[in-house]
Design a protein around this nucleic acid. Sequence first.
DNA 1: AACGGCGGATTTGTATACATTGACCTGGGA
DNA 2: TCCCAGGTCAATGTATACAAATCCGCCGTT
Lengths: 223, 223
Amino acid sequence: MKASDRAYAALRDDILQWRLVPGTVLGEVEQAERLGVSRTPLREALARLTADGLAAAQRGRGVVVSDISLEHLDELFELREALESKAAALAAQRGDRERFAGLRDAFAAAGALVTDDDPQRHEYYALAAELDAEVDAAIANSYLSQALASLRVHLARVRRLAKDDGARLRQAAVEHAAIAGAIADGNPQLAAAATAVHLSSSLQHIKATHSDTTPPPGEASHG
Amino acid sequence: MKASDRAYAALRDDILQWRLVPGTVLGEVEQAERLGVSRTPLREALARLTADGLAAAQRGRGVVVSDISLEHLDELFELREALESKAAALAAQRGDRERFAGLRDAFAAAGALVTDDDPQRHEYYALAAELDAEVDAAIANSYLSQALASLRVHLARVRRLAKDDGARLRQAAVEHAAIAGAIADGNPQLAAAATAVHLSSSLQHIKATHSDTTPPPGEASHG
DNA sequence: AACGGCGGATTTGTATACATTGACCTGGGA
DNA sequence: TCCCAGGTCAATGTATACAAATCCGCCGTT
């Protein structure tokens, strides 16, 4: 594998896993030494991260890990609704109905998957990723697929803020089942609506869990 | 200005103006010599073009100008509808009503702008770009803005396929006025609908003008 | 004491030399 | 005649040396 690919993958993973937190300065020499590559491939990796929106070039101070927080959540979900509603509608028009019927049933049975054994909920997220992949394949639109891929990178970063509990995931399974079901039925409008419902519910959950712990902006940090 | 920026701007412009046609191989040494820069900044420029989707890295053959044609038009417009409908709706919620009212009137009066003096229709396209910029500012959403910017790069490429005549542009002005008017009225649903109408009409026009002139795929370019 | 200009140090930006990989061509064998 | 193997070559991938720009701290002035 190319050194630039290794550097890119390593840095990207570090950022997605919050080992490199927003605001961290990615010095070329420093990171090149840490990852065991030369500056040239590392610069290419930084350029790709910048294009992804995971990092941003600050004048003078080099490249820094881009900021992401609850303040950006509304914006992110607005884009998400635009893209995923359209994707769901197109999938309903073009998708393989049996595959989505299978996914619908899988989500309907997914309540059992949500156990306390796996604190990271890998099984459920894997199933959700499967739905994403199936939608991607169904829409047959490289431009939309690329936009979705770019979006999901940012969603992966905010997943840490989600704090999904068992109850939320069981509700999400119901919503996902509705989406898959609408696609399986070949109903574009319903698929888009079910997606909108899911996203609204998901966004609301994230905000609610954080309004408990974080003070409202007006009263923030007076101590 | 940095050499890598110059190289990027030059190549991007060459691609957008179809001086570099799809399929052209962008050899590093060749382009570096042509643009008077070294390979290092040129590679950075190629990386950025690849991230933009204007070029693609083909294994073994280096970077080539990415393909775009009528076959991709439907896909491109699907993404366009997803993004621009959402953007119009958000602008209707948040935009400065007076500015969009001004744009609405400008489009309503734009029939006079469409003369035969300017074969490239710069004046009209400038007005359309102004609407885009105003929507961009109104939505206040960096993620959506970036997605729109990425989309517009590809739209600029296919503009060459459009062959807009005076009649079409006058109709487009009516449609644009409807969009700006809906936003000015603060009506998100109508703004989205007017956008969908405009895009459908625009896509249909492009396809119609080309079904006259271009032969079906089977007979294409046997010379 | 505060502000502005200047120098040093550290960083990024560029060029070029070297390594390596993949493609193409040629020659031999089936 | 076709196919495969090997070599050659040209391209990309990497490392490093050098140049340029920017920031920070210092010192002088006001």
